[in-house]
Design a protein around this nucleic acid. Structure first.
Lengths: 332, 332
DNA sequence: ATGAAAGCGCTAACAC
DNA sequence: GTGTTAGCGCTTTCAT
């Protein structure tokens, strides 16, 4: 497509590029152009369907009005909702979103951060992979505005929005114990991720408070990329080791799903046999297990706050780091 | 962040901008620079963490390496998977993805298309809202490379990738009838969307083939924005009108979910009472209703093919339109 | 009330 | 082998 430029408009209107540029960027009034000229320019631009070349504008202005977002997976319901929330907020602030996903791979994450910086995005929102310390430190050094969501590094001073993983997990596990569970299994993933470590810690605290002892045979760690098959083999192992397990705490939604699939396929009446708890909700979980104690992350809030913080940082790069820990909602 | 430019590199290396530019863009060999110079430049660039300013590069080259994608909702599992698939493919072709969502609103869609064109994306992938004919026609007129996914307009010649809605729906409904259902309800949405009309048509064909008659009281149409509450009121109505309904065909995943939620909360043993069929699968559906006849969209394929077609069109704008109708996978 | 021109950082045709 | 320079389309300072 051969695009119409400001020069084209100027030539046809017998005006200068400057005049047209000012008027089209809404500064016509301010700079004292006559109403007639303003009308003439805007009408003409509209009539020929003129579209500002944002690339040129960005180069000139040194800002792109693009926000980059990096997540491990887009098709995880959690990140999908997060992105949706961010998109909505970003739209209000007149930015567009550029999305990349890392497949939880630190190398790819480093590369993508680089790509987006090359793209000169105005800021970044990142749900970082484990082991991405270097990239994050580099971003700080480069003074690129960014905010971490969901995951963060407790020893690096950055903007971030996350959830109270430990406290919430503690609550859920206590709840299971109060309902009478004595042998509560922990089904978790990627324990080198700080949020997951916190959830594990919360589980331990919950056990302790209820006078239950920690048994490592009750703890299952599953890798995200192979969680479907791993769930089966690991649960097989668990039921063999501890046949009378009577409670489950899942640190994230998809693990709960797979366990339920397992329960059903093994004809276990999980509604009465176990007490269940889960960190984070997803569509269908409440239908499959209405009795489950779910600690729901406020995804919407997380996206909105992250975006707000980011826009503030973009406006003032020297603003001190803002951290926000959102409280989950407990669905009993 | 004060970014390092090619000029900075050139000054420090006592070389010209051109030399540095050529070498960094990998044309050093071709243009006959000495290996020593090439090494010197690339090493230095790396050491100072130089990042190409893609904005300037894009302006100069007239291409951005950005692909825009527009969907109704990001947090719908179908679109989330689609985006994930597209992202993976786009990444291979060295593009990044800019995402916007329309909330199924044609006006917003028009605006977003404009925004992305302003951004000078190299191409667009669009799951278009109903009533967006004008925007699409304009895109054609402007010769912007684009491909429609999922939804398309049968009377506009464009690139698109979609599914065989009618045939597949027909199969599912026939299957329900063969299992013995006599009164099969159709639960659908947005009938002004061509894909949904086709699914309805498939339903009708299925009935006809099985010698069942169409009864409009068996047809429920639900609006996406209010589907949760609408599902309840509409199903209430259905069961009042036709208490002996014995089959359900859902034209999309979330409608099936809500119906099952309804069945469970009304203590209906839906496993034995009805035969169920659904257009498109989603996590949890197979767990909730293992007996359901699901016609699964090949989302991965859809994303990959759309991206491939788009990159071809970007390379040759005059290439004739390509259409692709993917076959669903029937899970019985 | 309007215009001329420099500059944003990069590419590539052309020169030597 | 390497350098000079015009140009991509827009913004904005400085003139008039």
């Amino acid at each position: 497509m051969k695009n119409i430029s400001i020069k084209d408009l100027a030539d046809n209107l017998k005006l200068s590029k400057a005049t047209v540029s000012w008027i089209l960027s809404g500064q016509g009034k301010k700079r004292g152009f006559s109403d007639a000229t303003i009308k003439r320019v805007t009408n003409y631009a509209k009539s020929v369907n003129y579209r500002t070349n944002m690339v040129a504008r960005s180069l000139s202005l040194g800002q792109t009005n693009i926000i980059g977002i990096i997540v491990p997976y887009i098709d995880d319901t959690f990140y999908a909702s997060l992105i949706q929330a961010i998109e909505a907020e970003v739209y209000k602030h007149n930015y567009v979103l550029t999305i990349c996903c890392t497949d939880e791979n630190a190398e790819k994450e480093a590369l993508l951060i680089n790509t987006l910086c090359s793209q000169r995005v105005d800021g970044l929102i990142i749900a970082t992979a484990q082991k991405s310390r270097e990239s994050i430190l580099q971003l700080k050094k480069d003074r690129v505005p960014f905010v971490l969501v969901d995951r963060h590094f407790s020893d690096i001073d950055t903007n971030y929005v996350t959830v109270n993983s430990e406290e919430t997990s503690h609550q859920v596990v206590s709840h299971l114990a109060n309902q009478g569970s004595k042998k509560i299994a922990l089904i978790t993933t990627s324990t080198n991720l700080s949020v997951m470590r916190e959830r594990t810690q919360g589980y331990c605290n919950g056990l302790q408070e209820s006078g239950l002892s920690y048994d490592e045979r009750l703890v299952i760690e599953i890798d995200r990329p192979t969680y479907q098959s791993d769930s089966i083999t690991q649960l097989d192992r668990l039921f063999k080791d501890i046949p009378d397990v009577d409670g489950f705490f899942f640190t994230t939604h998809y693990l709960a799903f797979e366990a339920i699939r397992y329960f059903i396929s093994h004809d276990m009446d999980y509604h009465s046999k176990f007490h269940l708890g889960c960190f984070h909700d997803t569509l269908g979980l409440g239908i499959l297990a209405p009795e489950m104690c779910i600690s729901k992350i406020q995804v919407q809030e997380m996206g909105t706050r992250a975006t707000q913080i980011l826009t503030e940082v973009i406006e003032d790069v020297n603003r001190p780091s803002q951290c926000e820990v959102l409280k989950n909602i407990l669905l009993k």
